[in-house]
Design a protein around this nucleic acid. Structure first.
Length: 303
DNA sequence: AAATCGTTCAACCGCGCGTCA
DNA sequence: ATGACGCGCGGTTGAACGATT
């Protein structure tokens, strides 16, 4: 059975958005909030595909977008994260407030690739260009520590188990944050494929690969040559599960925009909880992913 | 001034995954 | 268990624009 088209192709506009279309979309989302992309175009009076509306909103119209040139610091963050995550643009974007996955992807392809090549670095493998492409299996611990390139070279982590390994390799701090309001909704899309392969304890979020603080400190010191402290907080992010329709008063567009989404609204059953990767960069700067940061500013509604 | 080339980036497309009936 | 549905992701395309000839 084939997939049904996401929209009525015959009556949908394509190509560049007009100002009127933008305004309609903005007005609609301002009143009704995000979500229900499939039905949004009709409700907003737009002759567009729901996907197109979503993309236009996420990549261009959202009020929290930064726009403008990337800074040198952002460049370096992107490079570091790409070396760890591969082409997981949405994950990388989650670490750069105000930037979208599409924007970062374009920027990578147009600027950073060239920049790395000019430095003599292969943008895919993040290894020197003249280095043999066949990697040896006898990588020493020291060399592993020297590079941020992990064992997930071209296949970023797809499961909690893999994330656990990644975490232990990088000396990630598995931070317990069951005060879920803090957590990101950004990574709701990052759905581990093999949930059953790891057990997360409900309240302390520990894993068997967890090391003691002392050990972590030692590892941290041994890896001091990395200019970014990849101290990762992994928490439980909101489920994509939509809640049943709330009461009319609590579901009014205004209240949805103004009231924070409660934990119970945000998180689904434990087995389907995705993972939020909140990287915390070193020094005084404690950065959260975009939606961790904007949690109080931006509230997503579900239909 | 016009033609050509190169670059950028908004937008589209197809697919995978989770959810639900 | 199965298929339809909706969302989100990564890859690709093509229009717009600037630089060069």
């Amino acid at each position: 059975m084939g997939r049904s088209p996401c929209c009525e192709k015959a009556h949908t506009n394509k190509g560049a958005w007009t100002k009127e279309e933008d305004q309609r979309l903005i007005d609609h989302i301002r009143i009704h909030g995000e979500g229900c992309w499939r039905s949004l175009p009709k409700a907003a009076g737009l002759f567009r595909c729901g996907k197109s509306c979503r993309l236009r909103w996420i990549n261009y119209l959202r009020p929290d977008l930064k726009r403008g040139n990337f800074t040198e610091e952002e460049d370096e963050i992107i490079i570091k994260l790409h070396s760890l995550l591969g082409n997981k643009w949405s994950l990388i974007a989650g670490r750069l407030p105000g930037r979208t996955d599409n924007e970062i992807k374009n920027y990578w392809n147009t600027h950073i690739k060239r920049k790395l090549i000019s430095r003599g670095i292969d943008p895919q493998t993040h290894r020197p260009l003249n280095e043999k492409t066949t990697t040896t299996t006898t990588t020493t611990a020291a060399s592993t520590a020297k590079t941020t390139q992990l064992n997930f070279k071209n296949t970023p982590p797809q499961s909690l188990a893999e994330i656990s390994i990644l975490k232990s390799q990088l000396d990630f701090k598995y931070n317990s944050t069951t005060s879920n309001d803090f957590l990101s909704s950004q990574y709701s899309s990052f759905r581990p494929k093999k949930i059953e392969s790891i057990t997360l304890e409900e309240n302390n979020c520990t894993s068997s690969s967890m090391t003691t603080d002392e050990e972590q400190q030692q590892k941290r010191e041994s890896n001091h040559d990395q200019d970014i402290n990849l101290d990762l907080t992994i928490g439980l992010a909101p489920a994509t599960k939509r809640e049943s329709t709330p009461t009319s008063s609590s579901n009014s567009a205004e209240s949805r925009l103004q009231q924070p989404v409660s934990s119970s609204q945000l998180y689904g059953s434990e087995s389907t909880r995705p993972v939020c990767l909140c990287w915390q960069f070193g020094g005084e700067r404690r950065e959260m992913c975009r939606d961790c940061q904007n949690q109080s500013l931006y509230h997503r509604s579900y239909c």
